[in-house]
């Protein structure tokens, strides 16, 4: 299964879509295609119905959290110091905004092809978390997209029944996100260290035991 060939076939048949081939450096060789949210539905329908591809089996839908990363790099800049132009090292901080990613693994039952890996990314992790739902194309995405909504917070537009799957309805957080903090709880360990010891110290200073 040649991913470049599939990419060009999709680009030829779905006008306007923007695909990016993301190489996978691991020995598994499973490279993926990054879709843009606007044309994801059209690409999905084409992949499912095209006679040469027939990717009718959506096996796995995964959510991934990429938190915002701050990179600081030292840059040499020409600056005026005491009237003389000199090269000074300056620390520049760049923030790559975080995003939530949804990955689809597709297989073809008829042609015994796969896995074809598709990816979609949200704009950021707070306000811009909408992505089109591919449940109308592959029914197997129904429960898995609900789970991603529950645990990551991605809102899927066009999903027939988007509500929490695993956590209770009154739950507010999205627990699989990297910045989720567990509710505070007494922990007993025979040899406390790190986090448990820190929390035990905190409880002790706050008001002792019970």
């Amino acid at each position: 299964m040649n991913l470049e060939a599939i990419e060009s076939e999709i680009e030829a048949n779905v006008p306007g879509c923007r695909l990016v081939l993301i190489a996978n450096p691991s020995p598994s060789g499973q490279h993926s295609l990054l879709l843009d949210a606007g044309h994801a539905m059209a690409v999905a329908i084409y992949l499912r119905d095209a006679a040469s591809l027939r990717f009718d089996f959506c096996s796995n839908v995964t959510g991934i959290d990429w938190p915002a990363k701050e990179l600081s790099e030292k840059v040499k800049v020409k600056k005026l110091v005491d009237g003389v132009e000199q090269e000074v090292e300056e620390v520049r901080k760049t923030t790559t905004p975080g995003s939530l990613e949804v990955v689809y693994h597709l297989f073809s039952i008829e042609k015994k092809l796969g896995p074809l890996v598709l990816r979609m990314s949200t704009g950021d992790r707070d306000a811009n978390v909408h992505l089109p739902s591919l449940t109308p194309v592959w029914r197997s995405a129904e429960l898995q997209e609900r789970e991603i909504f529950d645990l990551f917070g991605v809102v899927f537009d066009g999903h027939p029944d988007l509500r929490r799957l695993l956590m209770w309805d009154e739950f507010q957080d999205h627990p699989m996100r990297r910045d989720y903090v567990d509710p505070d709880d007494y922990e007993y360990e025979p040899t406390a260290h790190d986090e448990v010891l820190r929390r035990a110290n905190q409880h002790l200073s706050e008001g002792g035991g019970r």
């Binding site: 996978n24 450096p25 691991s26 020995p27 598994s28 499973q30 096996s59 693994h105």
Partner: peptide, 10 residues
């Protein structure tokens, strides 16, 4: 420590 990358095995 596997090299960075991803894999789907079934």
């Amino acid at each position: 420590r596997p090299k960075p990358g991803e894999a789907y095995g079934r």
